[in-house]
Amino acid sequence: MKQLICASVLMLCSVVSFADNAGQSQWLEQEQALFAGYLQEFDSSAKHLAESQQGYCANPQTQPDALKQAWLEHYQSWLALQASGLGPLEDLRTLWAISYWPDKKDSVGRAVTKLSAAISLPKPASMAVTQRNLRSLAVLLYAESERDCALLGLVTEAYLQQQGYLSAALAEYLDKAEPELLVLAMVDSYHLQATLMQKKLGAMFSAEHQRLRPYQGEAWRSDQSMWLLRAQAKQLATRYQAGLKPHLAQRDPQLAEKVEQALASLLAGLPQREPSVADQALQPWQSSQQQLTELAGLLSSAVPKALSLNLGFNNHDGD
């Protein structure tokens, strides 16, 4: 039976024959299992971040290398959950709450500096979103003048409140969402991941002006913006292999292969160095941008079409 499904929150519409789609349930279960793993990693690395912060602050004369590593690992665990397809507004809210990027004018840096100049520290729950995210922690970790254990403890605590809330909300959604909606959310999340990566690369590299913009990367303070982007691409490729590819291959093996190739080419071509204004070798940036455009196009158009799905509008339809 063909049916029309329009999700009121997800803003996604689909015309799909569910009854004759035997592989779909299996695929969905696999995607849910993958997401459960991502959430577990997100939570355990958050716990490790908190422990590392406490460990460093017990002996703040040492270098915070272990804490920096814990921060990076936790940031990496967050990448898999970015643009999770939970709906445009929810995706936006979580992006701001957890990593507050894009941040062209360094609102986070200014907010943390303001916090460090405050006579008395606020309660975690009353802190602004610019003061309690992963990038606020980066200010404290990588700008030595701002490093202060009272602040580190406060910002970590405030961040973990946000992280805990998001993690629980995602887990609940994965558990309770109608399968029809979840199908759309999962397909959309592949497309949104690719679009978000396009945005991240585009922030660091202006193709029009042939110029690199290092300060627009999401982790410019730690010089790990490209490292994180490569990690995100790798994570998406791994997820595709285990998740969408087998399902898509049942419908359109050629397309399934094409997406895999697009991901492989992207991974092989992504710049290895962090962006620098002095860097004149822009070809890898240019070609990566083209590869991401192609990948996003496949995931937004050809893949839903092959799966008889119709994706709705999203946050990236706009500027």
Partner: peptide
């Protein structure tokens, strides 16, 4: 596409939700 992109991604998202979440007059 013009209607949906302006309504959701641009107006509700970029111009309202972002400013609201960030409490950012910028």
């Amino acid at each position: 596409f013009g209607m949906g992109s302006l309504s959701l991604g641009e107006l509700a998202g970029e111009r309202m939700k972002v400013a609201l979440e960030a409490a950012s007059t910028e």
